[in-house]
Design a protein around this nucleic acid. Structure first.
Length: 495
RNA sequence: GCACCGGUGGCGAAGUGGCUAACGCGCUGGUCUGCAAAACCAGUAUUCGCGGGUUCAAUUCCCGCCCGGUGCUCCA
């Protein structure tokens, strides 16, 4: 795997340093609200990376944190009159449901900040022992940036002008240098706090990732991932804390996912283009199409998320599924002459596999990987139409699709389940009015009902009662069902 | 303002110092079909934000400008 490393600014080989599992840490969500598509682009790209590594035969030990205590959580929980645990639990559950809907593999370890306070305290004490961490008058602890000359090496910033000792009161905390960042925050009245050797309070934001990453992956590990915004200050601070404490390289490889645009603009609530996954599912977009769109452009590219694009990916996913079904379900003829060698189609399937892997290992070029698959689809479909596809070709083509799907994970159709799940959720939350009418129309329709109508139409077709057959097709169409007649019978799918 | 990314057809996007500028979607025409759907075939950017430069040759390298994004203390 050749992967761009933010730290070096170069594309480098990514491999486990110890020859075993790739040890990777990815910054997870702050659970104060439902995840939006921007969050999920990052989680999906990390998913593509870990799936690609596994496809290459590398095991992965992936740790993800859940930030379940921070300013926003405290603010929102207080406003809701809730304990922070009760408040964050809801969003944690929702987060994992959303990951499942998007078929994002769960990390091997999920680490909650509130469950790792002792590890954070120990790390701060380790820094305090070197006088790198210091306690301010109010009881907060800060990291002395002047003691870490390499500060800025990840984000390529020059902080050499930072002077130590100048007392600047930039906010309500007192610190020695304006750039010094909080390791531990003294409690404010009524706030959730922990009694520790450092005094009462709660952790600063950055310390959790350092402490938990090192707890589960060791002081030095292979890869650290996150959204591009986290590069500074979050990741820079993690490096400073960790490397000051251990005098070892924290993470060797840094993976940052570029932000997406929505309809050509940055996504923000004030722009009115801010979407959670659930918003999109309620509008009738399929989870698989959302996954496909968010991973179709390479992670270093600023993807422009549009509804037109989402509709396009819905169709693209459908085309791949239709192709897979066609190859798998058709009774293909036996190859007339067998010279023992691989057929042209078998060659194409193998070449597709090779191109697919080559694209992925080239800095996760998902766009090129997809192009390889679609080239095969077009070629094989054409041969199939021409009667030049044989039963002996089936396995290798399906193999290529399977390999593709180990990374892209869009061929299995769980879309209707997740739409139904989201509708049930919306009903409980009193948000059903946000669902698109077409989505609501499909809601009560069961597979059995559809099957009955499909059979009735087939019978009508057999007695050449096309008027009746078309009536039923229209009826099904109104229920969001699309029919496909073929020699093997009638297939249906939800739009 | 400073730093770093990016601007490729109707939309999303790959890519390269010189071969017909991938792929997906859309659109137009055709084949197939009871009609559709699916699938296939053909067509759909003389051109890669704008201006200048380097070069035998630039979309690809350099400079300037315009536009978008990110960071500059807690937003994936």
């Amino acid at each position: 795997m050749q992967l761009y490393n933010t730290l070096s600014g170069q594309v480098e080989t990514l491999a486990p340093s110890d020859g075993n599992a790739l040890r990777m840490y990815a910054c997870g969500p702050t659970v104060y609200d439902f995840g939006h598509i921007g969050n999920f682009r990052t989680f999906l790209q990390v998913d593509v990376l870990r799936r690609a590594m596994r496809l290459l035969g590398t095991q992965v030990r992936h740790v993800m944190n859940i930030t379940d205590v921070d300013d926003k959580i405290i603010r929102n929980a207080t406003a809701a009159g809730m304990d922070i645990d009760a408040y964050t639990r809801k969003y944690q559950e929702a987060f994992f449901e959303d990951l499942d809907a998007l078929r994002v593999e769960h990390p091997e370890v999920v680490a909650r900040a509130t469950e790792h306070i002792p590890a954070m305290v120990a790390l701060i004490e380790r820094l305090a022992a070197q006088d790198i961490a210091y306690r301010a008058e109010d009881g907060s602890w800060y990291f002395r940036i002047a003691r870490f000359p390499e500060y800025g090496k990840l984000s390529k910033k020059d902080f050499s002008g930072i002077t130590d000792g100048a007392r600047i009161d930039v906010d309500e905390y007192e610190k020695d240098s304006a750039r010094d960042f909080a390791l531990w925050k003294a409690p404010k009245p009524g706030e959730h706090q922990w009694e520790t050797a450092l005094g009462p309070g709660r952790p600063g934001w950055h310390i959790e990732c350092s402490a938990m990453a090192m707890q589960y992956l060791g002081e030095s590990f292979d890869l650290h991932a996150g959204g591009e915004d986290l590069m500074f200050p979050h990741h820079e601070n993690e490096i400073a804390q960790s490397e000051s404490a251990t005098h070892r390289t924290f993470a060797r490889h840094w993976f940052h996912v570029r932000f997406l645009l929505v309809e050509g603009r940055k996504m923000s609530k004030s722009e009115g283009n801010f979407y959670t996954l659930r918003d999109l599912l309620l509008r009738g977009y399929k989870a698989s199409a959302i996954r496909m769109l968010l991973i179709s452009a390479p992670y270093r590219q600023q993807l422009n998320f549009t509804f037109e694009g989402l509709a396009a990916e819905t169709i693209a996913v459908e085309r791949l599924r239709t192709f897979r079904d066609r190859i798998a379900q058709t009774r293909w003829p036996t190859r007339p002459t067998t010279d023992g060698g691989a057929s042209e189609i078998q060659h194409v399937a193998r070449e597709t596999n090779a191109k697919f892997l080559e694209a992925l290992t080239d800095d996760l070029n998902t766009a090129r990987a997809l192009a390889a698959i679609f080239d095969m689809v077009r070629f094989v479909n054409a041969r199939g139409d021409a009667g030049q596809f044989f039963a002996s070709d089936q396995a290798e083509v399906l193999d290529a699709l399977a390999q593709f799907d180990r990374v892209f994970a869009v061929l299995e159709d769980h879309d209707a389940e997740w739409t139904r799940f989201t509708l049930d959720w919306a009903e409980r939350e009193g948000k059903l009015d946000q669902a698109a009418p077409e989505v609501l129309a499909t809601r009560g329709v069961t597979d059995t009902q559809i099957q009955t109508l499909v059979e009735e139409r087939d019978q009508a077709k057999r007695r050449r009662d096309f008027k009746r057959a078309d009536t039923i097709r229209n009826q099904l169409g109104g229920m969001g069902i699309l029919l496909e007649d073929s020699k093997e019978g009638t297939r249906w799918k939800r739009k």
